[in-house]
């Protein structure tokens, strides 16, 4: 089993306004209260980003786009992570680099 690692992925995304996945302490409150439940599981997505596992992020495209951006997780996150904006930043990354879309 191999993994395509992009060591610069977290830095690349961190250039976006407010991307702060590294503030996540993996406590699981977000997963516990997410209306979409395991369909999203943002903390796993954030770990992939922090580990530079770009192929894993792309393999989880449906999870990334299943998030409602409803901020229920954010409202209850003890670390105050900007979860919805982080997910939106991941979408922007996938749209540009995975789908080849997004140019104005």
């Amino acid at each position: 089993m191999t993994a395509l690692v992009n060591p610069g992925l977290a830095d690349e995304l961190a250039r976006s306004d407010g991307f702060d996945a590294d503030a996540c302490m993996n406590c699981g409150v977000c997963s516990a209260i997410c209306p979409m439940g395991v369909d999203v599981e943002v903390r796993r997505l954030f770990r992939y980003v922090l580990l530079g596992m770009e192929d894993k992020v792309r393999a989880e495209t449906e999870r990334v786009f299943s998030c409602l951006l409803c901020r229920m997780c954010e409202e209850n996150c003890p670390a105050g992570v900007h979860i919805a904006e982080n997910v939106r930043t991941l979408r922007h990354h996938i749209v540009r680099t995975g789908f080849g879309l997004g140019e104005g």
Binding site: F65, R88, L90, H93, I94, V95, R96, G102, E103
Partner: peptide, 12 residues
Amino acid sequence: AYDLGLDEIVAE
């Protein structure tokens, strides 16, 4: 479009 990450198109 913004929610879906189409930032450049939305800015335009």
